[in-house]
């Protein structure tokens, strides 16, 4: 019922609104691709620049809905909050790396480690937040994401007790705050 109700008024001006809606992801993809072309080629001949313009135009014309699937202006806020999230993640990675380095160089290694698998459930919904959470878990040494499905259930292989206990707490709060989802 609700679907047919929504379809009625939108059907008339769908062409125009679709054009405007696809304009912003198109230009974002174009800027991204052209910047990548300039960085990779590194030359500023007119021929190479025009070739890059043509090819990045073609790519963004065909694939503008691939990078930004349903575009809203929420993306910019998420981007800014994600950039604020990166230094904390980097500091966490460095701290945990030294912990793993201590384990590796310890002479009695097999007494120190205690591998086991823990399972916990989160309330993350969207694909990109689950992917970010899984990659952050894997980048923090001592823990590897074994599987993560779309219901938000994570199975994590932890190498010792200390890194397993620190897991679902603070990082989950951070990721939830970055993507603006409810706990």
């Amino acid at each position: 019922m609700t679907i047919s109700k929504d379809n009625g008024p939108e059907g008339k001006k769908s062409l125009l609104s679709n054009f405007f809606k696809s304009c912003i992801p198109f230009s974002l993809t174009f800027i991204l691709m052209f910047g990548l072309w300039i960085v990779l080629s590194g030359k500023f001949d007119p021929l190479l620049i025009s070739l890059g313009l043509i090819s990045s135009f073609l790519i963004s014309f065909f694939f503008y809905d691939l990078l930004f699937p349903d575009f809203t202006f929420n993306y910019f806020a998420i981007c800014i909050r994600f950039i604020q999230y990166i230094p904390w993640l980097l500091w966490e990675i460095i701290k945990a790396n030294f912990h793993l380095l201590f384990i590796v160089f310890h002479p009695r290694l097999k007494d120190l480690i205690d591998p086991h698998i823990i399972v916990f459930k989160t309330n993350l919904k969207t694909d990109i937040s689950i992917t970010t959470m899984a990659n952050s878990i894997t980048l923090t040494p001592g823990t590897i994401t074994v599987s993560a499905n779309s219901d938000g259930i994570f199975r994590v292989h932890a190498i010792d007790k200390a890194s397993a206990e620190a897991l679902p707490g603070k990082m989950l709060d951070k990721v939830t705050k970055v993507f603006g989802e409810e706990k």
């Binding site: 990675i93 790396n97 793993l100 923090t140 040494p141």
Partner: peptide, 10 residues
């Protein structure tokens, strides 16, 4: 599995 910890992240 525990070999992956140093290999992937260090």
């Amino acid at each position: 599995y525990s070999r992956l910890h140093p290999a992937g992240k260090l």
